[in-house]
Design a protein around this nucleic acid. Structure first.
Length: 835
RNA sequence: GCCGGUGUGGCGGAAUUGGUAGACGCGUCCGACUCAAAAUCGGAUUCCUAUGGAGUGUGGGUUCGAUUCCCACCGCCGGUACCA
């Protein structure tokens, strides 16, 4: 549609007017506990969108999908007497702004501010009922202050294994622990480990970022570096357990469980040339079948146990492995490895078994060492075949399955005291034996690793930490010195030094005679880990959230009532936020144990060609264009009408025209307005059905069916004899208001009402008006539809059966057949079985 | 491989506890209005060898009756992958 063309209703005029009015009058301001206009008798409803990264590209059509859904729900809840918190903010730290700054010399703060301004204008053009007074930006110094404060909470606590919660470090100091001992248990700690270092970008990358940047031509290598880590692994069990009561999609729960990766088994200690090497196994019942042992190439004892004859080859092998990332290791399934020349003693039978190193064993999982049971493990089997190692059966499969490479449960054989036991019992018995002999113990192992929390970037929160030049000891910056902002710098290009670009800010680094500052910065996740809480009390200068606000908005078990966003955050963001929330809970800063009670993932919107929208495919739909041509209400309505919120669905511009046509019909209802128009019974019936269905559908987030019902209702208005009755139209406008706020307010105003629709109560429906005196009964013969009867609603079963059997079509169909059975469901159907 | 999701007209999608398959919208076709067109309004629209028959990915099962419940497959989408 071109701009010169006739617009079916003047959205281009009134949408802007209403947006300006809402902004000027702060229509959607949400009062906080303590405010003069706060009403504590109202229940709260906190509905949250995943806040966007304000990229230079601006809003895409995926953003308004979730935002419209939460907006409709929020508006609906408000009309139903809830105190609704529906805020918006900016996840504004991030690599793109920094990369752009490096290229153009423009400071990332400038770029970020411009992008944020643009995003906000775009969102405001869509008429969302956000309380903009609560806007939050992760790069604001006042926000950074509390992100850093939370980091210090982690830094200053440890995980108490006995009470299963985080506790302050001060308790350990009181007990006389040494600095070194304390540093070993902090929830934020220093760790030297091989990480993904990108020389071309000058930063460390998370595992999941590696492929993405490599594809863009950046180089990435493995390199051992000293990094800040967060001890999320201590929370593994709770992160799994507390998932259970949450109202989240099963798929997301499964994804998180999978990511945490809990396995139950045992640790077994092997004697290797006088050293104790511990392995983890989920199958202690197969210990008699362990014919060799494998260490990860990075295992610390490799050099010690390797014999002189094998040294050269082993070292060469370690070198090749070091150059491969975990990802590359996975790609090459062909088994490789080298014997160390050393032997281990199998504790259960005293057998001498060879010790190998191979890259199919990872240092990062378990103890970096395994006992190999080639008969009953796929990988060990392949390895043993390739290197001609012995294979001993210790499990007898069920049925006549071949035991070689059989990995399932069965019966223990060739296993001494386990013989004849089921795998289940054999596991238990072996663990008992190991524990009694002091050669191992029951063990639960997780895939989850500690969180690599430091980045070598400029545009992120600096760590509020100091290093003593003399002792090399780190310590926390006093809280009074927060926020610690990055210094103004002209040049923050990567230096090649893994300490990051802040190293060049010489004055800034030098904190005092004796101390220098930490130069690493936090990852983008930091700000998004707790933003939902800041919305509740965005300008508090004493605390990240006041106790009062937390208790009103935060709820008892979980903080946010509904969280809507994309699946891309299914694991990391949601897991990290849950972790921080639990730490803050443990330390007594929060009542609730979980951040998000209900989670909904909106489905991706594809291009018209059914493919993912991308610049290169030229199938990107710009929401600004849609708003210009059809109006914000049409965009909102279309995105909700496309299909179920959670589903992946393709864009269809014709579909936008369809909903736009619907809104135009609603607009034209006022032309048919008539003071003496009376609503027909049919109109009243549909109207009340609509009130009921739309309300229920909004609660279920089933917006497409709600809209379809409103289309039916509009038709009923058009068909009402004598014109459109004003009172009923006003009721309908209230129902449509959460979906199309501009259009409905405008018509409402034209009807002469001065009160905003959005500030009124959701209409009640009258069941009486929906009841019909007659029912349409389906008449089936052998399950096939043969007739329909319109009968009084309260007709008896016998009468109905008689009527059905008397129907001429039924008689025709049953002619010459014997009547076997007649099923009568009153008010619904009659099925005649005959053959 | 494993985990999760999903499969319904030409298209997006509806369908309560098992009870009219295809609501609503798009597209298409026909008609009204118009000199004409757009817009608007009304009607039709699952398929077929059509007074009937078939039909919700495929094949079975339970049932008077299955898109819905059970079993076994197949396709597509997402996640994950040598995790011991």
């Amino acid at each position: 549609m071109s701009e010169t063309q006739h617009k079916p209703f003047p959205f281009d005029v009134f949408e802007k007017e209403w947006q300006d009015k809402w902004a000027a009058e702060k229509t959607y301001r949400t009062p906080n506990p303590g405010d003069a206009d706060f009403d504590p008798s109202k229940p709260k409803y906190f509905v949250l969108d995943m806040f966007p990264y304000p990229s230079g590209a601006g809003l895409h059509v995926g953003h308004p999908e979730g935002y419209t859904a939460t907006d409709i729900l929020g508006r609906y809840k408000r009309m139903n007497g809830f105190n609704v918190l529906h805020p918006m903010g900016w996840d504004a730290f991030g690599l793109p702004a920094e990369q752009y700054a490096i290229k153009t010399g423009q400071h990332p703060r400038i770029t970020t501010e411009a992008n944020t301004k643009n995003f906000k204008e775009q969102l405001q053009r869509l008429g969302f009922a956000y309380d903009w007074d609560r806007e939050v930006n992760t790069t604001d110094p006042e926000y950074v202050r509390w992100t850093q404060w939370i980091f210090l909470q982690l830094y200053n606590s440890y995980y108490c294994d006995d009470c299963q919660k985080a506790k302050p470090i001060s308790e350990l100091e009181a007990k006389g622990w040494t600095q070194e001992q304390i540093d070993d248990v902090r929830l934020a700690f220093i760790h030297e480990a091989p990480v993904n270092w990108s020389p071309s970008m000058g930063t460390v990358l998370a595992n999941e970022e590696v492929e993405e940047w490599k594809a863009k031509g950046e180089t990435v290598e493995r390199r051992p570096l000293r990094q800040w880590m967060l001890r999320i692994t201590k929370y593994a069990e709770r992160l799994i357990d507390d998932l259970e009561p949450l109202d989240w999609p099963d798929s997301i729960k499964a994804l998180q469980r999978n990511w945490i990766g809990k396995s139950e088994g045992a640790e077994v200690v092997f004697d290797v040339e006088g050293n104790d090497i511990t392995v983890f196994t989920t199958r202690p019942d197969t210990l008699f079948g362990a014919t060799y042992m494998v260490l990860a190439p990075e295992h610390p004892l490799v050099s010690e146990i390797t014999t002189t004859e094998n040294k050269e080859r082993v070292e060469a092998y370690i070198k090749t492995c070091a150059s491969k990332s975990d990802m590359d290791r996975g790609l090459d399934k062909e088994k490789t490895g080298e014997p160390t020349g050393a032997f281990a003693i199998n504790p259960v039978n005293g057998e001498k078994i060879p010790v190998w190193i191979a890259d199919y064993v990872m240092m990062g999982y378990g103890s970096g060492a395994i006992m190999a049971v080639p008969a009953h493990d796929e990988r060990d089997f392949a390895f043993a075949k390739k290197f001609d190692l012995s294979i001993i059966q210790v499990v007898q499969p069920k049925g006549d399955t071949d035991w070689q490479g059989y990995t399932d449960h069965g019966t223990a054989v060739n296993s001494g005291f386990l013989d004849g036991l089921s795998t289940w019992d054999a596991k238990a018995k072996m663990i008992d034996w190991l524990e009694s002999e002091n050669k191992g113990s029951r063990k639960i192992q997780y895939k989850l690793r500690d969180w690599l929390f430091s980045r070598q970037r400029y545009w992120g929160e600096p760590f509020p930490l100091l290093w003593d030049k003399e002792t090399g000891q780190h310590s926390a910056l006093p809280e009074s010195e927060l926020p610690l902002l990055q210094p103004e710098m002209e040049d923050f290009k990567p230096t090649g030094d893994p300490r990051g670009p802040l190293l060049n800010a010489k004055d800034w680094i030098n904190y005092s005679e004796t101390c220098t500052r930490e130069t690493n910065t936090m990852p983008q996740w930091a700000g998004s880990c707790w933003y939902y809480m800041r919305y509740c009390d965005p300008s508090n200068t004493d605390r990240f959230i006041s106790k009062e606000s937390e208790q009103y908005w935060g709820g008892e078990d979980a903080f946010v009532d509904l969280y809507v966003g994309g699946t891309e955050h299914a694991v990391l963001h949601l897991l990290y936020a849950r972790f921080w929330h639990k730490v803050l809970h443990d330390l007594g800063h929060l009542d609730s144990v979980e951040p998000f009670k209900k989670l909904v993932n909106q489905g991706l919107i594809l291009g018209e060609d059914g493919q993912k929208m991308s610049k290169s495919l030229g199938n990107v739909v710009n929401p600004d264009d849609v708003v210009r041509d059809y109006g914000a209400d049409s965009l909102r309505l279309y995105e909700m009408f496309m299909g179920p919120l959670e589903q992946v669905k393709p864009w269809q511009m014709k579909g936008v025209e369809g909903v736009s046509r619907f809104l135009a019909k609603v607009w034209r209802l006022q032309e048919k307005l008539s003071t003496d128009a009376k609503p027909s019974k049919a109109l009243l019936k549909v109207l009340h059905e609509t009130i009921k269905k739309v309300g229920e559908d909004i609660e279920k987030l089933s917006f497409n069916t709600a809209i379809s019902q409103m289309m039916i209702c509009t038709k009923a208005f058009q068909d009402n004899e004598g014109g459109v009755p004003a009172a009923e139209l006003t009721t309908f406008l209230k129902v449509l208001n959460p979906f199309a706020p501009h259009l409905t307010e405008e018509i409402n105003l034209q009807l002469g009402h001065t009160e905003l629709l959005s500030e009124q109560t959701w209409p009640a429906y009258d069941e009486q008006l929906m009841i019909e005196s007659e029912a349409t009964i389906i008449i089936q013969v052998n399950g096939k539809l043969r007739a329909k009867l319109i009968v009084p609603k309260d007709i008896s079963k016998d009468e109905l059966e008689a009527l059905a059997l008397a129907d001429e079509n039924v008689i025709k169909q049953t002619e010459g057949k014997t009547l076997r059975k007649v099923i009568v469901i009153p008010g619904k159907l009659v099925n005649i079985v005959a053959n």
